[in-house]
Amino acid sequence: MKNLLTDIPGVRVGHAHDATVASGVTAVIFDKAIVTSADVRGGGPGIRDGALLEPVNTVESIDAIALSGGSAFGLEAGGGVQAWLAEQGRGFAVGDALIPIVPGAVMFDMLNGGDKAWGRFPPYRDLGYAAAAAATDTPFALGSVGAGFGATTANFKGGLGSASAVMTNGVRVAAIASVNAVGSVNVGDGPWFWAAPFEQNGEFGGRGLPPSFTPDMLAMRLKGGPAATAIENTTLAIVVTDAILTKPQVKRLAMIAQTGFARAIYPVHAPLDGDIVFAAATGEKPVDPLYGLTELGAIAANVIARAIARGIYEAKALPFAGALPSWKERFGT
């Protein structure tokens, strides 16, 4: 186990970013199409092909998911991933046609100091293609990479994190998260992470929680303060398991797993965020449809919380005047 999304066999992850633009794309590629659904809780989401993931709709399985910066411009990242998959002969068969199915979601990183004057067409389709081409099942980078390259939070540099776990019955579950929250992942302005109770093996510094909570620690911190707007944020997550699940069960998994956002970000699911969890199942190991699915969802929520904290812990500050500091810049390792 590498404590990464790629601990699920058949899952690959690739990043691509542009340092000048200060934005990027992360592609999650499935070696075979797998059943997927999603749960949206934020008030300002930006989603590609979200409707087809609902259990009432026809397409059961998808080929990849694209996470991107760039706000609505970043929705083109899915087209780049789709182009790469088409070259591999992947896709949903409609007669003689193969249509790669690539849902995705975006976050707003347009005001982070990067040069967004990219001309007629934004770079996200090309970044999506590059991320898909770079996808690997070996360990991948965390922090200021891919979709998390330009991410920020209320008080520290945001980033991309990942984590995994194995249930007592041998079922695996893993998550990847790009954290660009309007709120804070840290308690107050200190080194503690809200997700500290779920930390494993010092994966985000091992600082635990403060000995007590002051009113200042519990005060709401928002990116941009009172001037925060509904389009400037979002946390995106993908949770994948090797369990055998139907599309409605994967939808329920996404809903339970979304609890991990509340364990790691304060406040969360605001009108200022576009928070979304994609959930997918590779269909290798059986689980009980009631107790087993509930336990899987609870562990998935813990894994998402850990991935969110790791994204902040591993991030590096952007090289622009006035950029938010990274956690390690402020507190060391």
Rank of each mutant, 00 (worst) to 15 (best):
140 F>L: 06
146 G>H: 07
173 V>G: 05
173 V>S: 05
84 W>E: 09
62 I>W: 01
83 A>Y: 04
128 G>S: 07
162 S>E: 01
124 Y>K: 05
156 F>Q: 10
77 A>Y: 07
106 V>Q: 05
158 G>A: 05
182 V>A: 15
182 V>I: 15
110 M>L: 15
51 A>G: 03
182 V>K: 06
138 T>M: 15
150 G>C: 11
92 F>G: 01
113 G>F: 06
112 N>V: 14
119 G>K: 05
44 G>F: 09
141 A>R: 13
81 V>H: 05
93 A>R: 14
183 G>N: 05
103 P>C: 02
46 G>H: 04
71 S>V: 12
60 E>F: 04
113 G>A: 08
106 V>E: 01
104 G>N: 08
57 N>F: 14
113 G>Q: 14
178 S>M: 11
95 G>Y: 09
135 A>G: 11
103 P>A: 03
173 V>A: 07
102 V>F: 03
66 A>P: 04
99 I>S: 02
56 V>Q: 12
63 D>F: 11
85 L>R: 01
157 K>Q: 15
115 D>E: 12
78 G>A: 15
148 G>M: 09
158 G>I: 11
113 G>S: 12
185 V>S: 10
187 V>E: 07
101 I>Q: 00
178 S>R: 00
136 T>N: 10
138 T>P: 00
40 V>S: 03
153 T>D: 14
176 I>N: 02
60 E>L: 15
130 A>S: 12
64 A>M: 05
180 N>P: 08
51 A>I: 11
158 G>W: 10
167 M>D: 07
64 A>T: 07
107 M>G: 00
128 G>V: 04
96 D>V: 09
42 G>Y: 10
141 A>T: 11
177 A>D: 06
95 G>M: 12
153 T>E: 13
142 L>V: 12
152 T>D: 15
43 G>D: 08
142 L>Y: 01
107 M>W: 02
145 V>S: 05
64 A>L: 07
62 I>F: 08
66 A>Q: 04
187 V>K: 01
93 A>S: 13
106 V>F: 09
129 Y>G: 02
137 D>H: 13
129 Y>F: 15
180 N>A: 08
56 V>Y: 13
88 Q>A: 10
146 G>R: 03
